[in-house]
Design a binder for these strands. Structure first.
Lengths: 344, 344
DNA sequence: ACGCGCTATGACAACGTTGTCCAGGTCCTA
DNA sequence: TAGGACCTGGACAACGTTGTCATAGCGCGT
C-alpha cells in the first residue's frame, strides 16, 4: 500500500498531463511543452511523436497551471448589470469582439443590479486573475476595487461612472440626450411635459433628469413637481406615475421616459388612454420603429467597443490619468414624439 | 546583484501572496491559508493579526493556484450562440442563478453562430478547467468534446441537441409548437399558409418545418414548394421570401415565421402590405403584445434552469445514460394569428 | 585529431496554494 | 507531578506548467 497519498480526492477525472504525454512519446517534459506552444527547436519527427501521444491520450493543457506560472491570463472580465436587458446584448458582444481581436477570452457575469453582487463578482474575477475588468456599475462605491487596481488590474467603467474612485469611464451623453429629447417635445408645442425615470442615485438617471430640467428651463417653462417621477422601473410604479401625471390639476401633454424599461411600460399605459399623449424615450427598443416610438438612442455597441479598446490600450502599457469619454446620442423621430398637444 | 532571476517579467504588478501576509503578521504560511478559508484551529487573536495584514497589503487569494492544487474550479461554462439575441438573455440569466445557488461562478462566451468559434470557445473553457459545460450548439458535430467528456467535464446541450455524440440535452418542442401554431392558422380558415424559417441544418429549424408540414398534412392541405422558404435569417432573404409568397400564382393568406428574427422582419414586411395577412411566429418578442403578434412562446428561462439543474446533478455524481428533456411551448393568441383569410 | 559553434533535448526550480503530518504548548485529571 | 487529550501553528510536498540552464551530439574548419 502507498505510504501517504497527498493527492486531493477528486481530480479532473485523472486527466493526462504533459508528463504523461512525455512518457508516452518517450521524450522529455519540456519537449512536450515546446510542441504544445509551438516553440521552435523540435525536429519534425519528435513533434510528430508528441502530437500522436497528445491525440491518443486526449491531452489538453491546464491553463490554471499555465497562468500560475506566466502571471498573465489573456482574459478580461465583464461585469454586467443585467444579462437579460436587451440593451447589454450588443454592448457585451462588442466587448467580446474586441477581446477576441486581442487574443483574449472574455468572462462575463451579471450583478442583477445588486451592488453586493457586483462586488462579489468583480472580486471573484480578480481572484481568477483576469488581466482587466470592464464594469457596468450597479453600486455607487467602488473603493473596494482600489487594491486590485493598484495591483495592476486594468479597469474601465462603462455606461455609468465609478463611484468614489478615479477611473476610466465610457459613457453616453445622458444629459445632452435627455435635453435634446425634451427640447424636441417643446419644439412640437408642448409646455407641460412629464419625466419618468430610474432611481436618482443611478448616475445616468440623475443626468437624464438634469437634462430634462435644463431643456425646460432653456424654454422658460416651469416644472411642477407632480410631473417628475424618479423611482424603481417596475410596471406598477411607472403605471402609477403615468396615471398621476395625466390626472394632475395641470395634466401633462407629453412624457419623457428615462430608459428602455420605463418606455415599454409607458407605451403600454398610453395605449389604454383615450387621447394621444406625446412620448420620447431614452434608449432604442426593438420594434420601436413599427410602433412609431420616438427615442433618444445610445449606441450600445460603440460604448462596449470604446471601453474595450481603452482597456486593451491600458493593458498594452498606456498610462496617464483616468479619462472620461462621452459618446453622443441620436434622436430618432418616429411619430410618438411629434404628436402635437391638444388645442388649448 | 542576484545570481539568477527565474521569475517571469510581468507578474500581477507584484501582488502580495500568502507568504507575504504570513511574514507581515508574523505567523506561518498555513495559518494564513486557514484564516482565508475560514478553517478552524486559529485563535481569535491570531486571526485578527492575519486579517489586519491582509487588509494592509491588499491581499487576494490567487484562484489559479488554488484550482491547480484542488482540482475543482467551482466554475461552469456557458457557450451561447449569440449574446445579442434577446432570446438568450433570460436563458443565460437562469443558468447564472442556478450556478450561483450551487456556489459556482458562470463564465460565458458566444460563438457568433460560427461552429469553429464554438469549438474554440468550448475547448478554451475546458483548458480553464471548468467543472461543467452548457452548450447552445452552433455546429452539428461535437465529437471534439469527447475527450473532455471522458475526462470528466459534465456537459449539457440546450436549445439544440448535440451532433454525432450522445449527451444530455434540454430542448423546446419545436415540432409540436410549429404544428400547433400552423394548426391555429388552419383553424381560422387558412388553406394556403407559408413557412419562413432558418437554415435547415439547424435542428430546431428542421423540426419546426416538420411541424408545419405535419399540421398541413393533418388537415389534408397541400403544401406548394413556393410556400416553404428555409434559409438565412437576414432581412433581405426574408423580405424576398415574403414578397415571393404573396405574389405566387397561388398566394398565401397566412405566414408562419420560424423564429424571433424572422418574425420581426416579417412583421415589418407585412406592415407595408395593403391586405392584412395572418401571422404566427415562433418565439415571443418584446412588445409583441402591443403589436398584436400571435406567437408560439418557448420558456427560455425554463430551458436554462432545467439544463443547469441537470448539469449540477451530474456534477453531484448522478450518472446514467444521457437524457433528452423536451419542454412544451405555449400559443399566445394576440390578434395577428386570428385574422381570417379574405373571402374567396 | 581537436576545438568551435550550433541545435535538439532534458533536468530543475519556481509560480501560490492546500493537504498531511509533526512539534510544542496548555489544560485537565489521576 | 506525571501523563494524556487537545489545541495551535508550522514545515514540507505536491498540483501542472514554463523559463533557465546544462549537456550531448553533430558538422566543420584547421
Amino acid at each position: 500500500m502507498a505510504d501517504t497519498d497527498h493527492r486531493p480526492e477528486h481530480r479532473y477525472g485523472n486527466r493526462p498531463t504533459m508528463k504523461d504525454v512525455a512518457a508516452k512519446a518517450g521524450v522529455g517534459l519540456k519537449t512536450v511543452s515546446r510542441v504544445v506552444n509551438g516553440e521552435p527547436g523540435v525536429t519534425a519527427d519528435t513533434e510528430r511523436r508528441v502530437q500522436e501521444a497528445i491525440e491518443v491520450l486526449g491531452f489538453r493543457r491546464n491553463d490554471s497551471a499555465r497562468v500560475l506560472r506566466k502571471g498573465r491570463t489573456a482574459t478580461v472580465g465583464l461585469v454586467l448589470e443585467d444579462l437579460a436587458d436587451p440593451f447589454y446584448g450588443p454592448l457585451s458582444r462588442a466587448v467580446e469582439e474586441v477581446a477576441r481581436a486581442h487574443g483574449a477570452l472574455l468572462i462575463n457575469g451579471s450583478s442583477a443590479e445588486d451592488p453586493d453582487r457586483e462586488q462579489e463578482l468583480a472580486l471573484a474575477l480578480c481572484a481568477r486573475r483576469v488581466d482587466g475588468l470592464i464594469v457596468i456599475p450597479a453600486g455607487d462605491d467602488h473603493r473596494y476595487l482600489e487594491p486590485e487596481i493598484r495591483a495592476g488590474v486594468a479597469t474601465v467603467f462603462v455606461d455609468r461612472p465609478a463611484g468614489r474612485i478615479d477611473a476610466d469611464a465610457v459613457l453616453s451623453d445622458s444629459f445632452g440626450g435627455a435635453r435634446e429629447g425634451t427640447a424636441h417635445l417643446i419644439a412640437h408645442g408642448h409646455r407641460r411635459i412629464g419625466f419618468i425615470g430610474d432611481r436618482p442615485h443611478i448616475h445616468t438617471a440623475a443626468e437624464r433628469l438634469r437634462g430634462y430640467r435644463a431643456a425646460m428651463e432653456d424654454a422658460g417653462l416651469p416644472v411642477r413637481e407632480e410631473w417628475v417621477s424618479p423611482g424603481p422601473t417596475g410596471p406598477e410604479r411607472v403605471d402609477a406615475a403615468v396615471r398621476g401625471m395625466l390626472t394632475a390639476p395641470e395634466p401633462v401633454t407629453a412624457l419623457f421616459a428615462g430608459n428602455n424599461r420605463v418606455t415599454v411600460t409607458v407605451v403600454r399605459a398610453l395605449a389604454a388612454q383615450p387621447r394621444p399623449i406625446a412620448l420620447v424615450g431614452f434608449d432604442d427598443i426593438e420594434l420601436a420603429d413599427l410602433l412609431g416610438i420616438t427615442v433618444v438612442a445610445q449606441d450600445a455597441a460603440a460604448l462596449g467597443r470604446t471601453a474595450a479598446e481603452r482597456l486593451f490600450r491600458r493593458l498594452d502599457g498606456a498610462d496617464g490619468a483616468p479619462e472620461r469619454v462621452v459618446l453622443g446620442t441620436t434622436l430618432l423621430a418616429r411619430g410618438s414624439g411629434e404628436i402635437a398637444p391638444p388645442a388649448a
